[in-house]
């Protein structure tokens, strides 16, 4: 498989940031009250992820190792500010329903994780594809969770009513507990189907060759971070 395509396949399926690495769960659980919110959040994160990956990969030889985290945050924060302003200007309704979670993309661990684990070690073009893959994986996961919650909790998908009129929406699914039910249900399904997942050990085995194994404790980045703290 072509190494660029491989990056995208990796982000969407093999190391899906939500379902396999279980990263960035805070926005995942919070904004997926509807499919459209999930799509909006996913795409804005993808935009930031791709841009930040390219810039960080381009700057990777200039950034001194000691200040690499602050440098990465500055890059990510700049792009998030741009996305934040663009969304406020062009999609104000989506912007207001996502609220605080747009500025919070700065501290989304998927973005920082990819910068650390991939962009700091690879060239800009490969990093761009990695960003696209991871971003699409995140978007697909959010849309999936959002769709389930919207269908069960409101009887609609992307705002279109899909259930028969006799269906009574189970509104707990668009409230906070529903996010946990749906994510847990989808993860259980993954394990049942033996798909890659953080909770059945498959990610650990398969991930050895790639940059991020999903196993943060044994990750080189983790060891370095804890050393720095000392």
């Amino acid at each position: 498989m072509n190494k660029y395509i491989e990056r995208i396949y990796n982000g969407i399926w093999k190391e899906n940031p939500i379902f396999v690495q279980m990263l960035g769960l805070c926005p995942t659980l919070a904004v997926t009250t509807s499919a459209i919110n999930g799509l909006g959040m996913g795409l804005s994160t993808t935009a930031v992820l791709v841009a930040a990956n390219i810039l960080i990969a381009a700057l990777r030889k200039i950034i001194p190792d000691g200040v690499r985290l602050p440098a990465e945050i500055v890059v990510v924060a700049s792009f998030v500010t741009i996305v934040d302003m663009l969304m406020e200007g062009f999609v104000p309704s989506l912007y207001s329903s996502l609220g605080l979670y747009i500025p919070l993309i700065v501290v989304n661990c998927i973005i920082l994780g990819r910068a650390e684990a991939y962009a700091m070690k690879n060239g800009p073009i490969l990093s761009a594809f990695d960003g696209i893959g991871m971003g699409l994986g995140f978007t697909i996961a959010l849309v999936l969770i959002g769709s389930f919650r919207e269908i069960l909790g409101a009887g609609t998908i992307f705002g279109v009513t899909v259930t028969p009129a006799s269906y009574q929406p189970i509104s707990i699914f668009i409230l906070a507990p529903g996010a946990f039910f749906v994510l847990a249900g989808l993860t259980a399904l993954q394990n049942k189907l033996k798909a890659p997942s953080a909770t059945n050990g498959s990610a650990k085995k398969k991930g050895k060759k790639s940059a991020c194994s999903g196993d943060c404790l044994s990750c080189a980045g983790h060891v370095e971070e804890s050393k720095e703290e000392k």
Binding site: Q168, P169, I170, S171, I172, F173, L175, P177
Partner: peptide, 10 residues
């Protein structure tokens, strides 16, 4: 409580 949150009307 699940039902109370989901079907408050009923």
């Amino acid at each position: 409580c699940f039902l109370l949150i989901s079907f408050a009307g009923f």
